[in-house]
Design a protein around this nucleic acid. Structure first.
Lengths: 193, 193
DNA sequence: CTCTTCATGTAAATCGTTACATGATTCG
DNA sequence: CGAATCATGTAACGATTTACATGAAGAG
């Protein structure tokens, strides 16, 4: 049910097409709730049926027509209600396959898993740069933001602190496994870039 | 596909029933990959069909029979192979409804969201106590652990550092929203326990 | 006597991923 | 000429949740 409300949230300020939304919800909400375009189109269909959004076709030269969606008053109401519903809050379900793989750590896969850890470290670093750029550009002084933007800032902050933690964890993991590697193979191989 | 391998991972060291597995995979793996009993029973059925696990019924006095599952050599092989497969690694998909709700922060829901934040803070604190207890009891000196247990330790460490980060984020969020509350209502209300 | 725990399952619905399909435009 | 981008969708499958269903034991 949350995807539905994530989409409506993205439509509060702008009229957007399914394609726009799939482009990671304007590069913002998408960081916190990814969805594929198929899911989004399906959900937009349902939202239309509920009359929580309206559709408007916009012709374009040389491009397929755009279908722009806008939030209705009823949708806005439903969204406001949803925010106040106490849904299951199942505390941070990490659901990361890498953890399961780590449970199976052995000499035959340690090199592989170290490579995966390095990859993730790199990917998270990239994402953190992006988050920090957004933070500096738009949320320099959080205390002075209007209330709604404070909420958006807090989500971003969650992404930032979570990302930093993840980096630190990768480093600690790599360190521990580097020590373990010396037990395994006699020759110390250089970085596998 | 990952649930399947999570189950097999839990079966490496013990023979377990579906019920045991549903009890959060022996309180360990379950922290990192929760699944309901329905999912587990279904997956165990498939694993039996594949001959990756064997079933053995154990009668009990006054209790329903237990069906105990054990990993076969073929299952063990499949698991080892899976660890080495490069699956989609879609970097930490936070997927937390609270973030979406925070995007909708307003004066009409700020009290509600602050309560939710406090709840989560409390719940995460409880979980952290548990993690730390396990850590002290079983993983006091990680450097000296055998390789496989180092992997398990790293998963636990991920849970711990992630949890601490989450606590810190809750605190920062509550602080920012406490400041915001004073703008909203003239009278400062005491804690809403 | 009721609630919780142990122990297994079926059924239905929704959520999410992967693959397929179309068709024009722009960039290299 | 081939690949990427824009823009929409269908179909099939797999993953996950929620509800329904049974039945005995033990605790309060």
């Amino acid at each position: 049910m949350a995807l539905r409300y994530a989409i409506m949230t993205a439509l509060i300020e702008d009229e957007l097409s399914g394609y726009d939304l799939a482009g990671s919800f304007d590069k913002s909400l998408g960081f916190f709730w990814h969805a594929s375009h198929q899911q989004i189109y399906r959900e937009l269909g349902k939202l239309s049926d509920l009359a929580w959004v309206t559709r408007r076709t916009e012709a374009q030269k040389g491009r397929p027509d755009k279908i722009l969606y806008a939030l209705t008053d009823a949708g806005r109401e439903a969204l406001d209600e949803w925010v106040l519903t106490k849904d299951r809050m199942r505390l941070q379900e990490t659901k990361d396959e890498l953890y399961i793989k780590l449970y199976n750590l052995s000499e035959s896969n340690i090199d592989y898993l170290r490579t995966r850890l390095r990859e993730r470290r790199e990917a998270m670093m990239q994402r953190l740069y992006l988050y920090e750029r957004i933070r500096r550009r738009h949320y320099g002084d959080p205390e002075t933001l209007p209330l709604r933007r404070k909420g958006v800032y807090l989500a971003l902050l969650g992404g930032i602190t979570g990302g930093k933690q993840y980096l630190a964890w990768c480093d600690e993991a790599l360190e521990l496994l580097a020590g373990a590697a010396e037990d395994t193979s006699t020759a110390a191989k250089a970085d596998t870039a």
